[in-house]
């Protein structure tokens, strides 16, 4: 009889704990995600920078790509213009709302591409250079608290709300103090880790922040990673014609 009573109490405890876990309040984390989105968005100003990408490929060795990045969040536009290496100089990407175009000066042709595709064979995606929203693209499925290095962080598990994002599952390490994403892990549809991202340094730009160093690690190909460093960050107003196909064509003359 005593044994049955203990079992019953245990069962009740487990049920309560499960229910408590199920009812975990994600509103704080959702708020933090909105904050993360907010401070990485620049609706009132243009943004330009020079991105230096160092790609470490175990097969092809080290490769350096220098890209000039122009971004206007109002209207969802960006333009990426490759400056180095010489063989790819003049190639560019232009985002106009839903359409992302790739321009190749050798053929003088524009071709459709997607934000989900990788950028020039690196571990970065085209989407990494555009405005991005965790709060609307993902829902929080769980979170824990922990530390990353010396920083107290929230470790947040996310699941995509639809199939518009390239990675259906993600895990973020967000600092408690100023809501910076320090680390990401992105998972495939069958929940296999595909890419890790590290964001060790940020710069304050106007009212927001922008990572000045990003490291993307390919978790499937041993030893493959891409390091992106941002410099010459500016919020100066850009002429409207920067975000046009004509600008990309002219940039090569």
């Amino acid at each position: 009889m005593q044994k049955h009573r203990v079992m019953l109490i245990l069962l009740i405890c487990v049920s309560c704990l499960t229910a408590a876990a199920a009812a975990k309040d994600f509103s704080l984390i959702e708020q933090i995600l909105r904050k993360v989105d907010e401070q990485s968005s620049f609706p009132d100003t243009d943004l330009s920078a020079v991105m230096t990408m160092i790609i470490e490929d175990p097969e092809q060795g080290l490769e350096k790509i220098v890209v000039r990045h122009f971004r206007r969040d109002d209207g969802e536009r960006f333009l990426l213009l490759i400056e180095e290496p010489r063989t790819q100089r003049g190639q560019g990407y232009l985002l106009e709302g839903d359409n992302l175009w790739f321009y190749d000066p050798s053929s003088r042709k524009f071709a459709h591409t997607s934000l989900k595709e990788s950028f020039q064979g690196t571990d970065a995606r085209n989407a990494d250079f555009s405005q991005w929203s965790y709060a609307t693209s993902y829902k929080v499925v769980d979170y824990t608290e922990g530390t990353l290095g010396n920083f107290p962080v929230y470790i947040v598990d996310l699941e995509a709300v639809d199939d518009t994002v390239p990675y259906p599952y993600a895990k973020l390490w967000i600092t408690k103090e100023n809501h910076l994403v320090l680390r990401t892990q992105e998972f495939s549809l069958n929940k296999r880790l595909m890419r890790s991202g590290l964001f060790p340094s940020y710069a304050r730009v106007e009212n927001g922040v922008i990572p000045t160093q990003m490291i993307f690690i390919d978790e499937l190909v041993e030893g493959k990673k891409t390091q992106i460093t941002l410099s010459e960050i500016s919020t100066a107003k850009l002429p409207d014609n920067v975000f046009t196909k004509a600008f990309l064509e002219r940039a090569n003359r």
């Binding site: 997607s114 199939d163 390239p166 990675y167 495939s188 549809l189």
Partner: peptide
């Protein structure tokens, strides 16, 4: 990529 463009392995 899945048919909707999501990564898979």
């Amino acid at each position: 990529d899945t048919v909707t463009g999501q990564r898979n392995v």
